[in-house]
């Protein structure tokens, strides 16, 4: 794939904080116009990676390009064309909605400032609350305002760091509809998240743990490559069944989902042998199912921890 098709193309990205490895030898390729999910547990290096991509942190090692600009030397050009939405609300709480947008527009030196701010307010549906202080907005509205602010200068790449953390489901869905609309306009989106349903709304995704990239591809590819097999058990006493299964050879995960139990392992034969005694139990029904992303990721995380 040529560099022209890639909005982000980095390799060997490494960052240490006080000698501790935060991101290790990370390679990432994001195609123009796609929505790329960035997943991983807390403290896995997602935020550090995003900050390196937009020039907020200088990598200790590695090279590559972001929108065709060198991530080490051309951070100023990158900043001009990237919209970065921080994990924590980082607009001015003591400025009004309009004043915040106006400030951002000025910083980017936009010629049609007034018009850009007005249309952003209109799109947001905040036109009649333009003079409300940003600090008084609810979590969902703050997030929409933050997105509007980082879209104001019409960036070609959006870096969104856990944009939907702490936001209600309706606002989350609206947010993702907006992301898909933007991607449809040709904007590339890199979004980090903890939500599996959000991961499934991405074109492709990468999973990172302990600073190392563990998997990448489409959801189907990631699940298939993981080699995980999952059985679903419906039983009367799920708790007893669960505690008996845990620790059995071949069983790597036993997770209750409401009234059913998901039992997973990486070796299909071994797993079947382990659950065999329980399949005959009265009142129990066992079905092989497609493993979910969450099962895959927890599996990967535990394996990675064993390797650390």
């Amino acid at each position: 794939m040529g560099n022209d098709d890639l909005a982000i193309n980095v390799e060997g990205l490494t960052k240490r904080f006080n000698g501790l490895l935060a991101v290790s030898n990370l390679a990432l390729q994001v195609r123009r116009g796609e929505i790329y999910g960035f997943l991983g547990p807390n403290g896995s290096g997602k935020t550090t990676t995003i900050r390196m991509l937009c020039g907020l942190l200088t990598p200790d090692g590695g090279r590559g390009t972001c929108l065709g600009y060198d991530v080490i030397r051309e951070t100023r050009q990158i900043k001009r064309q990237v919209g970065y939405m921080t994990q924590r609300f980082s607009l001015y709480e003591d400025l009004s909605i309009r004043e915040n947008l106006d400030f951002t527009a000025r910083i980017y030196g936009m010629g049609n400032r007034r018009q850009a701010v007005d249309s952003a307010l209109e799109r947001l549906g905040l036109a009649d609350r333009r003079n409300q202080l940003a600090g008084t907005l609810s979590g969902g509205w703050k997030q929409r305002l933050a997105l509007a602010a980082c879209m104001l200068h019409e960036p070609r790449l959006l870096l969104l760091d856990e944009p939907t953390a702490g936001v209600d489901p309706k606002a989350r869905r609206d947010f993702w509809d907006e992301i898909h609309r933007l991607a449809g306009e040709g904007i590339t989106v890199l979004v980090s998240t903890h939500y599996m349903d959000e991961a499934e709304r991405c074109n492709r995704l990468a999973y990172i743990a302990y600073g190392t990239l563990l998997a990448r591809g489409t959801v189907a590819e990631v699940v298939k490559d993981s080699g995980i097999v999952t059985w679903m058990a419906e039983c009367a006493d799920l708790y007893a069944l669960g505690s008996q299964l845990r620790g059995q050879p071949g069983v790597s995960q036993v997770v209750p989902f409401g009234n059913v139990l998901h039992v997973s392992g990486t070796d299909a034969a071994l797993l079947e042998r382990a659950i065999a005694p329980f399949r005959a139990q009265a009142g129990c029904r066992w079905t092989p199912i497609q493993p979910g992303l969450e099962d895959v990721f927890i599996q990967m995380m535990e394996k990675a921890r064993d390797n650390v």
Binding site: R76, K79, R80, T86, F89, S90, Y92, E93, T104, I107
Partner: peptide, 13 residues
């Protein structure tokens, strides 16, 4: 302290 610095640093200012 309020985290607005991160936003400011991400702009070309």
């Amino acid at each position: 302290e309020r985290g607005t610095m991160e936003n400011l640093l991400a702009t070309p200012v």
